[in-house]
Design a binder for these strands. Sequence first.
DNA 1: ACAAAAGTGTTATCCTTACACCCATGT
DNA 2: ACATGGGTGTAAGGATAACACTTTTGT
Lengths: 255, 255
Amino acid sequence: MQQGVEKMFESMISECIPGHSIDCVVLGYEDKCLKLLLLKWKNTSIWSLPGGFIQKEEHMDDAAKRIMVERTGLDTVFLSQFHTFGNHCRRNVDDLIKKLNNQFLHDTATVDWFKQRFITTGYFALVDIRKSHPVPDALSESCSWVDINKLPDLIFDHEEIVRLAMSHIRIQLNYLPFGISMLPKRFTMTELQKLYEGFLGRPLDRGNFQKKMLKLGIFMRHEKQLLGGAHKAPWLYSFDRTKYEALLEKGIGFI
Amino acid sequence: MQQGVEKMFESMISECIPGHSIDCVVLGYEDKCLKLLLLKWKNTSIWSLPGGFIQKEEHMDDAAKRIMVERTGLDTVFLSQFHTFGNHCRRNVDDLIKKLNNQFLHDTATVDWFKQRFITTGYFALVDIRKSHPVPDALSESCSWVDINKLPDLIFDHEEIVRLAMSHIRIQLNYLPFGISMLPKRFTMTELQKLYEGFLGRPLDRGNFQKKMLKLGIFMRHEKQLLGGAHKAPWLYSFDRTKYEALLEKGIGFI
DNA sequence: ACAAAAGTGTTATCCTTACACCCATGT
DNA sequence: ACATGGGTGTAAGGATAACACTTTTGT
């Protein structure tokens, strides 16, 4: 066991509040599909959501932001709390210890920390994969983007957490035009549409989608793209940040 | 200080998990207005939301249910978690102790319990006032229904919690037809409309409201009401429970 | 020239909104 | 009779959904 891990456990136990954790459902968009940021634990086939604990004097939202910076290097992302999971038996730590095969969990204080009951608050984040720099934590051999439709088995109740995050996002999609944090500065309407289709899990009508989006009045159209496709070159758009934020404030449709 | 309070503190500290609390925004409807269930602390002018703590082996949702039963005697209510408040400085306990004027908080273990940092999860509940039997807890001299538009100052950040609950309810109102748990078995469309207006804080068109509601197909119409008003007697409706629950499942409008 | 995908247009239908009108009842 | 509030109807406008047509580009 490396020095890094021991140190991390020490500071975790001394600086964080017990019993409460944070799990982040971090979504990005690449190659026409939605991807989820996952950690793979060292020398195991255990996959989990990036997460962490809350420092004693830290706002919970700030803890989520910190975790995002640590795992993705991104400090300004769309980040929103969506649910707190309070089932007392959500974590099967004995099973975890077995799978870990004597890695990490030796020290009694550390084992006790992991064995305690945790209530976890789920946050979802929408980020631009191209700007992200995933870094594994001390327990993980990798931190990587995985196609949302090809997820491996996840630890504990993390699959449930992902499911609920997606459901919250789908609902919010009705009144919050996501996208600015997930797409490159300039994008085509088709790219935006594919992103929406990824969230909703179903195809949308091309013509209607364009009209609906453009009517929101939050886009700026740029000169044509000339990328090599055997077809008419699509317009490039970007978000008019001011109008976009104003729309986020008041929402769309509704009430 | 009575025996009851000491006992309560003892079991609270020994049986509940520290650092996490639950606060309930309990709403009822009476006399054409929305009312909030509030506790008034003994011999003070401190008002607060009913709340409590989570037992060591208790699911968080069950804790919320238990708290609802304890305060209202109602065990099947519409109860839904809406947000977790994780600001580390949300509670000014020194101020509380001053206001309490040496009541309750003497024992060091108890003072320590209250002085610790709490993360609280907010639940909202929609109940039928007529069926409720508000009972104060050991610290309170009263547990009573207060007009949502005439709230007193609340302790800590409880006003913020109420505000956020209302905002969540208003959004959910767009796809969940609330009402079954708040109105008497039989009600008129105008009563339902007044309830909605209470949530939304604005008047709705009478004719359009009726058509929209009836189109949902979750109502049963009964024989006419003959109550003494100098006008046409309105129909009485009740919720068709089966269809209502089915609609709650899939939501209305949307995606 | 042709396929492929982008952009735009058309139509029918539905929903919302703002009213207007009539109905039943108690005074 | 009439004021009061309940029930229903209508017409305009907007949003939605399905689909057709045109345009541009690389091969």
